[in-house]
Design a protein around this nucleic acid. Structure first.
Length: 587
DNA sequence: ATCTGTGGCGCG
DNA sequence: AAAGCGCGCCACAGAT
């Protein structure tokens, strides 16, 4: 790495280096930046190379051109936490649309999923992997030197050597990971994750548009509702509350302890303050508490603190998406979480496209049940989806022995929907009884009727879960795996493992297809020159912002690519996507 | 004054 | 309330 200490500052030098390493099967890439915010901070250094040879590139002078060359053709570029580097490069104007990307961090998560407790953060850092796979010691203390640096001149020889070591480490780690990924059948999942990291990077960088004023109005009205609910609560609890000089009650309704005590004084002995138990008492005080809680939840979680995440430069919400956020393979969103915005509420309407633009919402219809149909090949499930029938309604009419449709006995359809999901994931008769407010005996009978109507469902779920426990892992249709080692170590009981074994392949396959869809949409929009980009993903739903002129084309791309991504895994039944062009995020 | 675990609840 | 799965955020409670 002798030449590594010189910084390349022109395109010819970059070109010369790249031709020297063009025979390498892939390149490792890393960046050093002035900070973590792609909208405020800059890329100083771009490091690229192999295990033997690395180049340091002056990012501000030739970063964009260098990146264009690095990401050209179908070269494989490997990064550790690629989303971060891609997002920082995105702010340099680098699109990397043809890039073939792999991510050593996501690879490690795939390899360790369920095998190590600490997989979420510390356990997959580059320094840890460098040590684990290549016996390299990445001196962490040098790394701090980069963060304060405002320019390349501030970087001394130690920092530059360190920058080269990161590339070397990434390269060596990936070489070793490849062998393990292949051995565990994880190459396809790794490819999906790598592809999706580009879409996630762009999505985070773009951000979700929000109308903060409209949002504040919704919060204000929730605040009013909370105040009213509070007065109502005070009236209900009047007999057991003490008041101060001003007549204010001193009870803290956020404290479960205090609430339980007050309820007991009213003669309501319940084991917890969960909504379900409160409502079951049928007492007006409990009902008032539930109403208060709803407002409280809205005001606290979706109140002013939510708006603190609006970016000062862009005015948008740049949530941080963790591609592998759950052991099933699902992603997670934070700061803010854009995946738990109240549905069918005023809040979703506050996510509005800017002037002259549109938001397009597209979601898979009954994704998990179609996946279950694919996996089980249950004849009734398969036939129903092929015929375009209403599965929940059919379940309801079979189980309740009454005609059910959107118009006839619709409440039974809603119950059947809950049953469908619950039973598919291992809910027992007890859970079902509670869910639908039936007796244990009735629930047992319903359950029996359900599984008689869909003979292959129970058999499939039980067989596949048993096989998963035998071999030690569950897996999705893309080959993503979840090992039971952590659960075993933690002493999880058999039933819990069985339920995870039933659910993970289904939920995880849904994640596989949505991520594949994201990657395909991201690429297609760029290839077709459409003015549109992803702004949110909620497990089986994608939200895209597009110009007015391109909205229809963008919608068509979404539907086409989501269906294609779904069809990569689900073949026995059609994959259906509902998409809608609108001014705001809605279903 | 801060950290960590837990209960409760928003979403799919 | 241990028994349907997966998350993140808020507030409280008990700890340091």
């Amino acid at each position: 790495m002798a030449e590594g200490l010189a910084i390349l500052r022109d395109e010819e030098a970059v070109g010369a280096f790249l031709s020297e390493v063009e025979r390498a099967p892939f390149l490792a890439l890393d960046t050093e930046t002035t900070g973590l915010d792609p909208h405020q901070d800059r890329v100083l250094l771009l490091q690229v190379g192999t295990a033997e040879r690395q180049a340091l590139i002056d990012a501000e002078r030739v970063g964009r051109a260098a990146a264009a060359r690095i990401f050209s053709g179908d070269r494989l570029v490997v990064m550790h936490h690629a989303k971060f580097d891609l997002e920082m490069l995105r702010s340099l104007g680098v699109l990397a649309e043809d890039a073939l990307v792999m991510d050593t961090m996501l690879n490690e998560q795939l390899l360790m999923n369920g095998r190590r407790q600490d997989l979420s953060h510390g356990g997959v850092g580059l320094a840890v992997l460098a040590e684990r796979y290549a016996g390299m010691d990445l001196d962490k203390s040098v790394r701090e030197g980069f963060m304060g640096a405002r320019s390349l001149d501030a970087l001394g020889p130690a920092e530059l050597r360190y920058a080269c070591r990161d590339v070397e480490a990434t390269y060596r780690v990936f070489e070793r990971q490849l062998v393990r990924l292949a051995a565990d059948g994880l190459l396809r999942a790794a490819a999906i994750e790598g592809d999706a990291s580009q879409a996630f990077a762009d999505m985070e960088w773009r951000g979700m548009p929000i109308d903060a004023e409209a949002w504040r109005a919704v919060v204000a009205s929730a605040n009013d509702g909370k105040a009213v609910a509070r007065e109502e609560l005070d009236r209900e609890f009047d007999a057991v509350l003490s008041r101060d000089l001003f007549g204010h009650t001193s009870i803290n309704y956020e404290s479960d302890q205090e609430v339980l005590t007050a309820l007991a004084q009213l003669g309501l002995e319940i084991e917890s303050t969960r909504r379900e138990l409160l409502l079951a008492t049928g007492h007006p005080a409990a009902a008032a508490l539930v109403r208060y809680r709803e407002h409280q939840k809205v005001v606290s979680t979706y109140g002013e603190s939510f708006l603190s995440h609006v970016h000062p430069k862009t005015g948008r919400l740049h949530s941080s998406f963790k591609s592998i956020g759950a052991v099933t393979g699902r992603s997670a969103s934070r700061e803010p979480n854009l995946q738990n915005i109240p549905a069918g509420s005023q809040f979703r309407a506050c996510f509005r496209a800017p002037e002259g633009r549109k938001l397009i919402t597209a979601d898979y219809s009954a994704a998990e049940l179609r996946i279950l149909a694919e996996m089980s090949r249950d004849p009734v499930f398969v036939q129903t989806f092929r015929a375009g029938g209403d599965l929940h309604a059919i379940v309801a009419s079979q189980v309740f022995r009454k005609p059910v449709s959107k118009t006839e006995n619709p409440e039974l359809r809603a119950r059947a929907k809950a049953i469908n999901f619950g039973l598919a994931y291992g809910m027992g008769a007890g859970g079902l009884a509670q869910q639908i407010g039936a007796s244990m005996r009735e629930a047992e009978e319903l359950l029996e009727r359900y599984f008689r109507a869909f003979p292959a469902i129970r058999g499939f779920l039980e067989d596949s879960a048993r096989r998963a426990l035998e071999r030690g892992y569950a897996e999705t249709l893309a080959g993503r795996r979840f090992w039971f080692s952590d659960m075993d170590r933690k002493g999880a009981d058999h039933g819990q493992k069985i339920r995870v074994a039933k659910n993970m392949p289904i939920q995880g396959t849904n994640a596989d297809m949505t991520k594949l869809a994201m990657a395909r949409i991201h690429r297609a929009l760029q290839r077709e020159g459409i003015d549109g980009f992803l702004v949110n993903m909620v497990h089986d739903e994608l939200v895209l912002e597009a110009s007015l002129a391109d909205a229809e084309r963008a919608r068509a791309v979404m539907v086409r690519e989501m269906v294609a991504a779904g069809a990569a895994f689900v073949r026995a039944v059609p994959v259906e996507v509902e998409a809608k062009v609108s001014d705001a995020w809605s279903k």
